[in-house]
Nucleic acid binder design. Structure first.
Lengths: 186, 186
DNA sequence: CTGATTATTTAACATTTGTAAAAGGTTTTG
DNA sequence: CAAAACCTTTTACAAATGTTAAATAATCAG
């Protein structure tokens, strides 16, 4: 789907706003496993996955942890950096060959002053991300690992294609534990 | 602190916007343990805690679970309902004698059209809530219960006054487990 | 195609956390 | 004040998850 068609499903914006946005969007493709944004950087880009898949990841005690997955038409930002202007210890990585649209966030935020509809659009987009995060929190707070795994399986088919090491850490468990759950013993 | 002084520290709004907001705010006090919003209701109010403390809670397998704490000057909303207009299985409860300001959310959202600065202010407020939720997610995903408890203790002094049963479920553990951690054996 | 690399499962054991019940503490209220 | 209600800790045992290492299985690169 075209980006603006996608945006129209959320909140229609004026032709002027579209024109202004086009100036600050760039498309880029990433190879499998390529780093999109380095750990330690500031988040200055709002990404939209056009095809492929990407994660937000970080390291804890030497282990690679997947905090977030993004697939086709998903927004991907490191919120704790984008909205605070501080660097973050998280990075973004392409899982597969991935095509991304990147919107320069500083420019976008400036456009909010002249284009109220753009601020509205992105307010709605990020409110939705906020809601998704609250739901994931609920899942991690008191559901068992097995419940979380089943819930994830039901959320999207694409998850089937993602290597289990990413999925395990996303669920907050080890690969060994995930294997047990999958074999029906967990 | 006065509400508008507090808002000014986030994003200054016009006198007209203040006047419009005053029409949709009501102050109400709640007794200790009083339910502010019932489980199963829709979130149509943005609360601000003036004094006291409140939680977002729900039931899972018969257990009372605390999802969120709010203290003085904190915003408290059930985001998964406020931003989707759907009912939620979570409620809001006062822990202590608590004074709250309630802003009618439907009216607020209507004001966004006429008062761009109000939309800006609340966008910034909820972006901040979103960031807080992401940080909590990170904590629940891969920190140990002990780490989470120590982190919570450092976040605010007020937490010392909150009964441990609320804190245990907020951390995603049982009271027994929290007692073990506190006694240094966990 | 085949060895090398990477991903996944299994096994054995350790640690953490949960469950249920009881025992102390503390607070509330008549 | 004293009984009741509520909160917190402790105990003993069960279940879930982690750790390390090894064994398979699948994929990749020359």
């Amino acid at each position: 789907m075209n980006l603006f068609d996608f945006f129209d499903t959320i909140y229609p914006i004026s032709p002027e706003a579209k024109k202004a946005m086009e100036q600050i969007i760039r498309e880029k493709s990433y190879a499998k496993n390529e780093i999109v944004q380095e750990i330690g950087s500031r988040c200055r880009t709002v990404y939209i996955v056009k095809s492929g898949s990407a994660t937000i990841f970080y390291y804890k005690d030497g282990n690679d942890i997947t905090e977030h997955f993004a697939f086709e038409n998903d927004i991907i930002v490191r919120a704790e950096s984008l909205f605070t202007r501080k660097p973050t210890s998280k990075g973004i990585q392409a899982i597969d060959e991935t095509l991304m649209l990147g919107i320069d966030s500083e420019s976008l935020f400036l456009l909010y002053d002249r284009h109220h509809d753009l601020e509205r659009l992105f307010r709605l987009i990020f409110e939705n991300e906020y809601v998704n995060t609250v739901k994931r929190l609920e899942s991690l707070q008191f559901k068992s690992a097995k419940e979380r795994y089943l819930e994830l399986l039901e959320s999207t088919d694409i998850i089937q294609k993602i290597p289990l090491k990413y999925i395990a850490s996303y669920l907050g468990i080890t690969q060994v534990s995930l294997s047990r759950i999958r074999s029906g013993l967990g």
